[in-house]
Amino acid sequence: MTRETIALKIKRQDAPGAKPYWNVFKLPYLPHANVISCLQEIQRNPVTADGKTVTPVTWDCNCLEEVCGSCTMLINGRVRQACTALVDILEDPIVLKPMSKFPVVRDLQVDRSRMFENLKKIKGWIEIDGSYDIGEGPVFPEKIREKAYALSQCMTCGCCLEACPQFTLTNDFMGAATFSQVRYFNLHPTGAMNKEERLEAVMKSGGIADCGNAQVCVEVCPKKIPLTESIAEIGRETTLQLLKNLVLK
Protein backbone atom coordinates (compact mmCIF):
# COMPACT_ATOMS: atom_id res chain seq x y z
CA MET A 1 0.00 0.00 0.00
CA THR A 2 1.43 3.39 -0.89
CA ARG A 3 1.38 5.98 1.78
CA GLU A 4 -0.94 8.91 1.11
CA THR A 5 -0.57 11.24 4.05
CA ILE A 6 1.87 12.44 6.67
CA ALA A 7 0.48 13.31 10.09
CA LEU A 8 2.20 15.89 12.28
CA LYS A 9 1.30 16.63 15.87
CA ILE A 10 2.89 19.90 16.91
CA LYS A 11 3.14 21.49 20.33
CA ARG A 12 2.55 25.20 20.01
CA GLN A 13 2.89 28.20 22.26
CA ASP A 14 2.11 31.76 21.18
CA ALA A 15 4.67 33.51 23.38
CA PRO A 16 6.91 32.93 26.41
CA GLY A 17 4.71 32.18 29.39
CA ALA A 18 1.63 31.51 27.23
CA LYS A 19 -0.21 28.22 27.62
CA PRO A 20 0.99 25.53 25.20
CA TYR A 21 -1.52 23.74 22.95
CA TRP A 22 -1.42 21.12 20.22
CA ASN A 23 -2.27 21.19 16.52
CA VAL A 24 -2.52 18.16 14.28
CA PHE A 25 -1.89 18.49 10.54
CA LYS A 26 -2.38 15.95 7.76
CA LEU A 27 -0.32 16.59 4.65
CA PRO A 28 -0.21 14.84 1.30
CA TYR A 29 2.68 12.36 1.23
CA LEU A 30 5.70 13.31 -0.85
CA PRO A 31 8.76 11.13 -1.31
CA HIS A 32 12.02 12.35 0.28
CA ALA A 33 10.16 14.74 2.58
CA ASN A 34 11.79 15.82 5.80
CA VAL A 35 10.35 17.65 8.80
CA ILE A 36 11.32 21.04 7.34
CA SER A 37 9.57 20.41 4.03
CA CYS A 38 6.47 19.42 6.04
CA LEU A 39 6.60 22.64 8.06
CA GLN A 40 6.98 24.58 4.81
CA GLU A 41 3.93 22.77 3.46
CA ILE A 42 1.99 23.90 6.54
CA GLN A 43 3.01 27.50 5.76
CA ARG A 44 1.51 27.11 2.30
CA ASN A 45 -1.69 25.66 3.73
CA PRO A 46 -2.06 26.32 7.45
CA VAL A 47 -5.16 24.21 8.03
CA THR A 48 -5.33 21.58 10.76
CA ALA A 49 -6.57 18.00 10.29
CA ASP A 50 -9.97 19.04 11.61
CA GLY A 51 -10.25 21.82 9.05
CA LYS A 52 -9.38 24.82 11.19
CA THR A 53 -7.29 27.59 9.67
CA VAL A 54 -4.52 28.53 12.07
CA THR A 55 -1.42 30.71 11.94
CA PRO A 56 1.56 28.93 10.34
CA VAL A 57 3.79 27.13 12.83
CA THR A 58 6.96 29.07 13.61
CA TRP A 59 10.36 27.40 13.82
CA ASP A 60 13.98 28.34 13.26
CA CYS A 61 16.02 26.98 10.41
CA ASN A 62 18.58 28.09 7.92
CA CYS A 63 21.03 25.80 6.14
CA LEU A 64 18.78 22.70 5.89
CA GLU A 65 21.82 20.45 5.72
CA GLU A 66 22.81 20.11 9.36
CA VAL A 67 25.71 22.52 9.53
CA CYS A 68 24.06 25.58 11.09
CA GLY A 69 22.40 23.91 14.09
CA SER A 70 19.37 26.17 13.90
CA CYS A 71 16.45 23.76 13.44
CA THR A 72 17.03 21.69 16.57
CA MET A 73 13.81 20.41 18.18
CA LEU A 74 12.29 17.34 19.76
CA ILE A 75 11.09 14.96 17.06
CA ASN A 76 9.19 11.93 18.33
CA GLY A 77 10.79 12.61 21.68
CA ARG A 78 14.35 12.74 20.39
CA VAL A 79 16.37 15.92 20.17
CA ARG A 80 17.80 16.42 16.68
CA GLN A 81 17.83 18.73 13.67
CA ALA A 82 14.59 18.85 11.70
CA CYS A 83 16.36 19.03 8.32
CA THR A 84 17.90 15.56 8.61
CA ALA A 85 14.72 14.07 10.07
CA LEU A 86 13.46 12.16 7.05
CA VAL A 87 9.74 11.42 7.02
CA ASP A 88 10.20 8.00 5.46
CA ILE A 89 12.03 6.73 8.52
CA LEU A 90 9.98 8.48 11.20
CA GLU A 91 7.06 6.92 12.98
CA ASP A 92 3.67 8.44 12.08
CA PRO A 93 2.29 10.72 13.51
CA ILE A 94 5.43 12.80 13.78
CA VAL A 95 5.37 14.62 17.11
CA LEU A 96 7.22 17.95 17.22
CA LYS A 97 8.02 19.81 20.41
CA PRO A 98 10.38 22.68 21.18
CA MET A 99 13.53 21.88 23.15
CA SER A 100 12.66 21.81 26.84
CA LYS A 101 15.90 23.08 28.37
CA PHE A 102 15.76 26.50 26.78
CA PRO A 103 13.06 29.18 27.12
CA VAL A 104 10.42 28.88 24.41
CA VAL A 105 10.15 31.96 22.19
CA ARG A 106 7.22 30.78 20.12
CA ASP A 107 6.04 27.34 18.91
CA LEU A 108 9.23 25.42 18.06
CA GLN A 109 11.59 28.37 18.52
CA VAL A 110 13.73 28.53 21.64
CA ASP A 111 16.29 30.98 22.97
CA ARG A 112 19.75 29.41 23.14
CA SER A 113 21.66 32.61 23.90
CA ARG A 114 22.90 31.03 27.14
CA MET A 115 25.20 28.82 25.06
CA PHE A 116 26.76 31.81 23.32
CA GLU A 117 27.20 33.62 26.64
CA ASN A 118 29.10 30.60 27.93
CA LEU A 119 31.48 30.87 24.98
CA LYS A 120 32.32 34.37 26.19
CA LYS A 121 32.96 33.13 29.72
CA ILE A 122 35.49 30.54 28.58
CA LYS A 123 37.22 33.00 26.21
CA GLY A 124 36.33 30.87 23.24
CA TRP A 125 38.76 32.42 20.78
CA ILE A 126 42.44 32.51 19.87
CA GLU A 127 44.07 35.70 21.14
CA ILE A 128 45.65 36.89 17.90
CA ASP A 129 47.66 40.11 17.86
CA GLY A 130 45.66 41.50 14.98
CA SER A 131 44.38 40.70 11.52
CA TYR A 132 47.33 42.17 9.62
CA ASP A 133 49.70 39.83 7.86
CA ILE A 134 52.40 38.82 10.30
CA GLY A 135 53.20 35.49 8.72
CA GLU A 136 52.29 31.85 9.08
CA GLY A 137 50.38 30.25 11.91
CA PRO A 138 52.02 27.64 14.11
CA VAL A 139 53.13 24.40 12.50
CA PHE A 140 51.49 21.40 14.16
CA PRO A 141 50.86 17.75 13.39
CA GLU A 142 47.90 16.54 11.35
CA LYS A 143 47.01 14.22 14.23
CA ILE A 144 46.36 17.15 16.57
CA ARG A 145 44.51 18.91 13.75
CA GLU A 146 42.21 15.92 13.33
CA LYS A 147 41.47 15.94 17.03
CA ALA A 148 40.74 19.66 16.96
CA TYR A 149 38.57 19.34 13.85
CA ALA A 150 36.36 16.77 15.52
CA LEU A 151 35.68 19.33 18.27
CA SER A 152 35.43 22.38 16.03
CA GLN A 153 32.36 21.06 14.25
CA CYS A 154 30.18 21.94 17.26
CA MET A 155 27.21 23.92 15.85
CA THR A 156 26.07 25.18 19.26
CA CYS A 157 22.82 23.35 18.51
CA GLY A 158 22.20 22.34 22.13
CA CYS A 159 21.34 18.65 21.61
CA CYS A 160 23.86 17.61 24.29
CA LEU A 161 22.33 20.04 26.78
CA GLU A 162 18.76 18.99 26.05
CA ALA A 163 19.70 15.39 26.80
CA CYS A 164 21.82 16.19 29.88
CA PRO A 165 20.05 15.48 33.20
CA GLN A 166 22.27 18.06 34.92
CA PHE A 167 21.38 20.95 32.59
CA THR A 168 18.06 22.62 33.48
CA LEU A 169 16.12 25.70 32.44
CA THR A 170 17.01 27.50 35.64
CA ASN A 171 20.47 26.39 36.83
CA ASP A 172 23.82 27.72 35.64
CA PHE A 173 25.44 24.47 34.47
CA MET A 174 27.53 25.05 31.36
CA GLY A 175 27.31 21.58 29.90
CA ALA A 176 29.22 19.40 27.48
CA ALA A 177 29.30 21.76 24.47
CA THR A 178 31.09 24.44 26.50
CA PHE A 179 33.56 22.05 28.14
CA SER A 180 34.41 20.61 24.76
CA GLN A 181 35.13 24.09 23.42
CA VAL A 182 37.58 24.67 26.29
CA ARG A 183 39.39 21.55 25.16
CA TYR A 184 39.27 22.71 21.54
CA PHE A 185 40.90 26.09 22.17
CA ASN A 186 43.44 24.63 24.59
CA LEU A 187 44.51 22.14 21.96
CA HIS A 188 45.71 24.87 19.60
CA PRO A 189 49.33 25.95 20.14
CA THR A 190 48.38 29.65 20.37
CA GLY A 191 45.14 28.93 22.20
CA ALA A 192 47.12 27.02 24.84
CA MET A 193 48.72 30.30 25.91
CA ASN A 194 45.42 31.13 27.65
CA LYS A 195 44.76 27.61 28.82
CA GLU A 196 44.62 28.38 32.53
CA GLU A 197 42.07 31.18 32.15
CA ARG A 198 39.75 28.82 30.31
CA LEU A 199 40.18 26.10 32.92
CA GLU A 200 39.48 28.58 35.69
CA ALA A 201 36.27 29.57 33.91
CA VAL A 202 34.91 26.03 34.18
CA MET A 203 36.03 25.59 37.80
CA LYS A 204 33.38 27.97 39.09
CA SER A 205 29.73 27.35 39.87
CA GLY A 206 28.05 25.62 36.93
CA GLY A 207 31.40 24.25 35.84
CA ILE A 208 32.85 20.84 35.18
CA ALA A 209 32.52 19.66 38.78
CA ASP A 210 28.73 19.64 38.40
CA CYS A 211 28.83 17.08 35.58
CA GLY A 212 27.01 13.96 36.74
CA ASN A 213 28.68 11.80 34.10
CA ALA A 214 25.41 10.53 32.65
CA GLN A 215 27.17 10.28 29.25
CA VAL A 216 23.99 10.88 27.24
CA CYS A 217 25.45 14.03 25.65
CA VAL A 218 27.69 12.04 23.37
CA GLU A 219 24.83 9.80 22.24
CA VAL A 220 22.72 12.64 20.89
CA CYS A 221 25.47 14.78 19.32
CA PRO A 222 24.65 14.99 15.59
CA LYS A 223 28.32 15.60 14.78
CA LYS A 224 29.58 12.69 16.90
CA ILE A 225 31.85 14.98 18.87
CA PRO A 226 33.71 12.95 21.51
CA LEU A 227 32.08 14.95 24.32
CA THR A 228 32.71 12.48 27.12
CA GLU A 229 36.40 12.41 26.20
CA SER A 230 36.39 16.20 26.40
CA ILE A 231 34.69 16.12 29.79
CA ALA A 232 37.17 13.56 31.11
CA GLU A 233 40.13 15.54 29.84
CA ILE A 234 38.90 18.89 31.14
CA GLY A 235 38.09 17.12 34.43
CA ARG A 236 41.70 15.96 34.73
CA GLU A 237 43.11 19.31 33.66
CA THR A 238 41.00 21.24 36.16
CA THR A 239 42.03 18.88 38.96
CA LEU A 240 45.67 19.55 38.11
CA GLN A 241 44.93 23.26 37.94
CA LEU A 242 43.30 23.08 41.35
CA LEU A 243 46.38 21.43 42.83
CA LYS A 244 48.61 23.98 41.14
CA ASN A 245 46.51 26.77 42.60
CA LEU A 246 46.75 25.23 46.08
CA VAL A 247 50.51 25.01 45.88
CA LEU A 248 51.21 28.32 44.15
CA LYS A 249 48.58 30.67 45.52
Partner: peptide, 21 residues
Protein backbone atom coordinates in the same frame (compact mmCIF):
# COMPACT_ATOMS: atom_id res chain seq x y z
CA UNK B 1 47.98 33.98 0.92
CA UNK B 2 47.78 36.61 3.70
CA UNK B 3 44.11 35.76 4.26
CA UNK B 4 44.85 32.05 4.59
CA UNK B 5 47.70 32.75 7.02
CA UNK B 6 45.39 34.96 9.07
CA UNK B 7 42.65 32.33 9.23
CA UNK B 8 45.27 29.76 10.17
CA UNK B 9 46.52 31.96 13.01
CA UNK B 10 42.93 32.33 14.18
CA UNK B 11 42.83 28.58 14.71
CA UNK B 12 40.94 27.22 11.69
CA UNK B 13 41.50 23.46 11.63
CA UNK B 14 42.87 23.39 8.07
CA UNK B 15 44.07 19.96 6.94
CA UNK B 16 47.84 19.70 7.19
CA UNK B 17 50.75 18.03 5.42
CA UNK B 18 52.98 15.41 7.09
CA UNK B 19 55.33 18.26 8.04
CA UNK B 20 52.48 20.13 9.72
CA UNK B 21 51.98 22.87 7.13
Amino acid sequence: PAIIRLMDRMGVAFNRTPEGH
